[in-house]
């Protein structure tokens, strides 16, 4: 409630400032904060604003998908956002609640050029960047980068591994990857093999909920191995004298799909689709990928080598296809399994 009032005032202020410029519509985008916000504004939004004058995009960093959804719910009767950035599963939740207008080829022709994984049945939003799960390692502990997820099970690493337990997506992703690693074929039916293996990991786990994030314990060498998201991991690895190393292990990984969603009854009407179209374009997506290691969804985008090396775009064969709906369906089951057999182990 409070944040929406805050940027309602900001928007009102922005609108009054925008007043003197004739007929310029402001499109408000609500999305993730910090790194994402900074880079997306620089690579995509600022360029869009400079390239034309009819639409001006304002980006407001709200927080996590959950927080953004919370804001959308609160504003439902009088939306202040035109577009919202959400994880694809949260886009589904919001669609079920009637918060969005569907994005398809009729809204932007570019939708046809997108990776099929960018769309989800029953979700109104459309994927515009891809992140993926990676294994993090402490450079002080590993002179050469490990290549396999099984490195985490090394008995020498007692209390040296950090893992985010379900319901965090990282935990769900790890369950699916380890299950496949152990020979499981259909995670929807059963993840028993994966969970049995994960139960053996428990003695090595320092914490099942690394705070403030998954990267801090590795950076400080408090932990030797961890699980994280590629984009942020690459950012931390790029810092001078960084202790963090990033690897996409050979057994595979899972995408995390960020979607743009058109808010129903939004203030700026059709102007929002102009920006949506730009966001889905190859230039915008490559420009963003150059700033932060997110992979593009537009299949027409030509991926330069530097981006291929740092994102899943360079190893598409390792990516396990997981439908967000399927994931949502097994989430509770996997959460219970973790609590019963993994976290409770000493």
């Amino acid at each position: 409630m409070k944040t929406s009032i805050k940027y309602a005032c900001l928007v009102a202020g922005a609108l009054t400032l925008a007043g003197p410029v004739a007929a310029q519509t402001v499109v408000t985008v609500g999305g993730y904060g910090e790194l994402f916000a900074e880079k997306y504004k620089k690579a995509v939004i600022d360029r869009f604003n400079e390239s034309q004058k009819e639409v001006r995009v304002e980006y407001y960093a709200i927080g996590s998908s959950a927080q953004i959804l919370g804001n959308l719910r609160a504003q439902k009767s009088a939306p202040q956002l035109d577009l919202a950035v959400l994880d694809i599963s949260v886009s589904k939740a919001g669609t079920d609640e009637g918060l969005f207008d569907k994005i398809d080829e009729t809204v932007s022709k570019r939708v046809a050029d997108l990776n099929p994984q960018a769309r989800l049945e029953g979700a109104a939003g459309i994927g515009f960047t891809l992140d993926n799960v990676v294994m993090l390692y402490s450079k002080k502990q590993f002179a050469t980068a490990p290549t396999s997820w099984s490195a985490m099970w090394d008995p020498a690493l007692r209390n040296k591994v950090t893992v985010s337990a379900p319901p965090e997506i990282l935990g769900l992703a790890l369950s699916i990857v380890v299950d496949k690693m152990e020979g499981g074929t259909d995670f929807k039916a059963s993840t028993a093999k994966g969970l049995a293996k994960l139960a053996e990991l428990a003695p090595n786990v320092l914490t099942f909920d690394p705070k403030p994030d998954a990267y801090a314990p590795i950076l400080s060498n408090q932990a030797s191995l961890g699980v994280g998201w590629n984009a942020r991991a690459q950012y931390f690895a790029d810092q001078p004298d960084s202790n963090l190393g990033v690897v996409l292990p050979k057994e595979g990984s899972i995408f995390q799909i960020n979607t743009l969603n058109l808010v129903k009854n939004r203030p700026s009407g059709e102007a929002a689709t102009k920006f949506l179209d730009y966001a889905l374009s190859p230039e915008a997506q490559i420009a963003f990928a150059k700033e932060v290691a997110y992979a593009p969804t537009n299949m027409k985008a030509v991926v330069p080598e530097e981006i291929a090396k740092r994102t899943a775009a360079g190893a598409p064969e390792r990516m396990i296809a997981v439908n967000a709906l399927d994931l949502a369906a097994v989430r509770d089951r996997i959460v219970q399994e973790w609590r019963r057999s993994v976290i409770s182990r000493k």
Binding site: V90, P167, R331
Partner: peptide, 24 residues
């Protein structure tokens, strides 16, 4: 509990947080 519990301590307060913020 969230910061010191390492994901191992399940209390009403942490569960409320998880259900509201993570699981939605």
């Amino acid at each position: 509990p969230k910061l010191l519990g390492g994901g191992r301590v399940f209390l009403l307060a942490t569960e409320i947080y998880d259900q509201a913020i993570v699981t939605l």
